[in-house]
Simulated scan of single mutants.
Amino acid sequence: MSAGGPTTAVLVLEDGRIFRGRAYGAVGETFGEAVFSTGMTGYQETLTDPSYDRQIVVATAPQIGNTGWNDEDDESGRIWVSGYVVRDPARVPSNWRARRSLDEELERQGVVGISGIDTRALTRHLRERGSMRAGVFSGEAIAAEAELLERVQAQPHMKGASLYEEVATREAYVVPAIGEKRFTVAAIDLGIKGMTPHRMAERGIEVHVLPATASA
């Protein structure tokens, strides 16, 4: 936040629809496919879910960030979303497990976001017209609307993108069974969430997580 007040931010969709709000998280610019997430809770798991790579995620829940950010609930080793869009960010996080605010974690990991926009209208727009390329711009990244739209439309489409190469593990690793071992399973990582092999381990399964390039 600047000394003079909140930093202005804009969300630009490839069809020309523009939403204006305030910077949330890192200040700058980002591009991705605009999609929405309807979860009422679990924003930390959503943000660290590898399946959201290269996507700008719109939170449909009106208030986000109430429980802050902890060091236990990540689904992977980093935030994967390209950008984050919220309506009403919590001013003060409140949870005994929180280590910092969501805003601080987004800024720490360089994730550009926007707050204070009508996410209900944005979600309806995406539901009616489908997911589309978008950009979030804040601070010095803001330019004339025509220029921002042109930059969004110059971005590659998601269709045909090979994302597993970005999100999959490079090295195999083992998640041991919890308690008595009953089975051994090989899981090819195409963007697996950390909780998946953990839940299998709770059921006595030793999980060998392999790179996406692994052969039979």
Rank of each mutant, 00 (worst) to 15 (best):
Q153M: 14
V152Y: 01
R124L: 12
M132T: 11
Q109I: 03
A143N: 01
T119I: 07
L149Q: 08
E145D: 15
L148N: 04
W96S: 08
S131G: 02
A98K: 08
S94M: 06
R91V: 08
E107W: 05
A144F: 00
I117Y: 06
N95M: 03
R108E: 13
R108P: 05
L106Q: 08
R127I: 10
E105F: 11
I142Y: 03
L126K: 10
D118N: 15
V92Q: 09
S138H: 02
M132E: 07
V112D: 10
S131M: 07
R99V: 15
A121S: 14
R124H: 12
R100N: 10
I117C: 06
A98S: 12
L106D: 10
H157Y: 10
Q109S: 12
A134I: 08
S115R: 11
D118Y: 03
S138Y: 01
V152I: 11
R127G: 03
L106I: 09
D118P: 03
E105D: 12
G135T: 04
T119Y: 02
A144M: 01
G130T: 13
E104I: 07
S131D: 08
G130I: 10
Q155F: 04
A141L: 07
Q155V: 03
S94I: 05
R97K: 14
S94R: 05
H157S: 14
E107R: 14
A143W: 00
V136I: 15
R127D: 05
S101R: 05
S94D: 05
I142C: 01
L149G: 04
Q153R: 15
P93A: 10
E128T: 11
A154T: 10
R99C: 12
F137T: 00
S138D: 02
I114D: 04
L102S: 09
L122T: 06
